[in-house]
Structures are given as structure tokens and as C-alpha cells.
């Protein structure tokens, strides 16, 4: 049996998690203080996921960039690809907080949304 130690990143508590793995099976998870930590530990062993936060270019707005994020975490290995996809996009005002900028990015089923508003210059 293999023991893997993780730090839960779901909230700033940063609980210290211990996952016992037998081959590819999770045998036991301990150290979490809430259910979200349990879910994080499972995902981290099976398929680690992260929320991506970045910016996209803007034209004609009060700022040259608009900040965006994935609405849900996406597989960690897709982060770089997603950044590349987003680097090819240019948005125009008006944009409100929560507007969908890219639907279903890289077929993950997750949308990318704006996290700040953009007004015309």
C-alpha cells in the first residue's frame, strides 16, 4: 500500500490529507475537515483539476484586458491548452461580470466567464 500526502487547496484551511492507495484503488482518505476535502483528495488521485484564472484581450473598452475564469475546475493537464485557446480571443464591450466568454472550453463541459465588467471607452 502506498501513502500519498496532499494539502487540500479547496479553502485556505489547507488541511493535510493522507490518501492510502492500493494500485489504482483508493483505500482510505483521512485528514479532511469537510466533504469538499474528500472530493478534492479523490480527484487529485484520479484526475487533478484546477480553476483557471487568466485574462483575454479587449478592444474598445476601458481596459485593454478583461479577467476571466473557468466556472468549474478543469483537468490540470488542460490548463496550458486552455490558456492558448483564450489567447486567441478578443472581446468587445459591454461585458458584465458572469458573462460567458467561451462556451464549453476544450469540450470539458465547462464555460469560461468574465470576472469583471468592461465598458466602452
Amino acid at each position: 500500500m502506498e501513502k500519498r500526502e496532499l494539502t487540500c487547496i479547496v479553502c485556505p484551511n489547507g488541511c493535510h490529507l493522507v490518501v492510502e492507495v492500493e494500485g489504482k484503488e483508493i483505500v482510505n482518505i483521512s485528514g479532511y475537515e469537510c466533504k469538499r476535502g474528500l472530493k478534492y483528495a479523490e480527484d487529485e488521485i484520479i484526475m487533478p483539476k484546477r480553476t483557471l484564472t487568466t485574462t483575454v484581450k479587449a478592444e474598445g473598452g476601458h481596459l485593454p484586458v478583461v479577467s476571466v475564469r473557468t466556472k468549474e475546475p478543469i483537468p490540470k493537464e488542460l490548463l496550458n491548452k486552455a490558456v492558448y485557446e483564450l489567447s486567441r480571443i478578443t472581446v468587445k464591450p459591454p461585458i458584465n461580470v458572469g458573462d460567458v466568454i467561451v462556451k464549453n472550453i476544450l469540450s470539458t463541459g465547462v464555460d469560461v466567464i468574465a470576472t469583471r465588467a468592461l465598458y466602452s471607452k
Binding site: 479547496v10 479553502c11 485556505p12 480553476t51 484564472t53 487568466t54 485574462t55 479577467s67 475564469r69 461580470v97 458572469g98 470576472t115 469583471r116 465588467a117
Partner: peptide, 21 residues
């Protein structure tokens, strides 16, 4: 613009600008 804001206040993980908004 990173996330990690508002877990206690809104029980949601927001980015900084969204929290301010």
C-alpha cells in the same frame, strides 16, 4: 484575478473582482 475569495463570506470561490462587485 485569481480565485480563492469569498469562501467564508459567500460560500463560493470567487475571483477578486467578482468579490468586490
Amino acid at each position: 484575478i485569481h480565485n480563492g475569495f469569498g469562501l467564508i463570506e459567500f460560500k463560493e470561490e470567487l475571483s477578486g473582482p467578482e468579490y468586490a462587485e
